[in-house]
Design a binder for these strands. Sequence first.
DNA 1: CACTAGATGCTCT
DNA 2: GAGCATCTAGTGA
Length: 193
Amino acid sequence: MLTADVLARPAPEVAPLLLGAVLRNGPVAVRLTEVEAYAGRDDPASHAFRGPTPRNGVMFGPPGQLYLYFSYGMHWAANVVCGPDGTAGGCLLRAARVVEGVELAHERRHGVAERDLARGPGRLTQALGLRPEDRGTDLLAGGDLRLEAGSGEPFEVATGPRVGVSQAADVPWRFWVAGSRYVSAYKRSPRAP
DNA sequence: CACTAGATGCTCT
DNA sequence: GAGCATCTAGTGA
């Protein structure tokens, strides 16, 4: 089960546990297939590495909150805050399969293939209809926007380096469902050494 | 299919 | 003003 106690563990421990879990926002629900861990103050690739700012403040708060950030001019991406209250950490939700509300997700994602509805961080937030003001939502509080346990179907977890980061580019803190087609493509940052 | 280039605007220095 | 935890459309095989 994904309790606050579990999410209070370090992000690299929590990340594989999020695979297979369901994130719901009202009528649309997705099953997570790919996640990356960001370990806060000790992780040069993390937004929290240089300390708290207005943007990343929720990462320093209690676990289980939603952290949203804006990236590359056009996209929002979602994290689940991990680690104990007062310690920064989070898991970036990189990809998922839409399991409920497929029609609404298609409307939001205008004419793309079913496989691409939530394959990628920006696509995932768009398919779910997450908005900037959802930052800080407690995903364990049982609201319209919440984290649910998965169906328990067994699967293997694969690991590898994180996508698009220029710092700590070889740390294997990306986790995905082995063999799943609902996983984004790996792309190394052009700025990485 | 693989690979590349350019758009785009928030966030912090 | 520089730097991005990206996406899409375009090209070429």
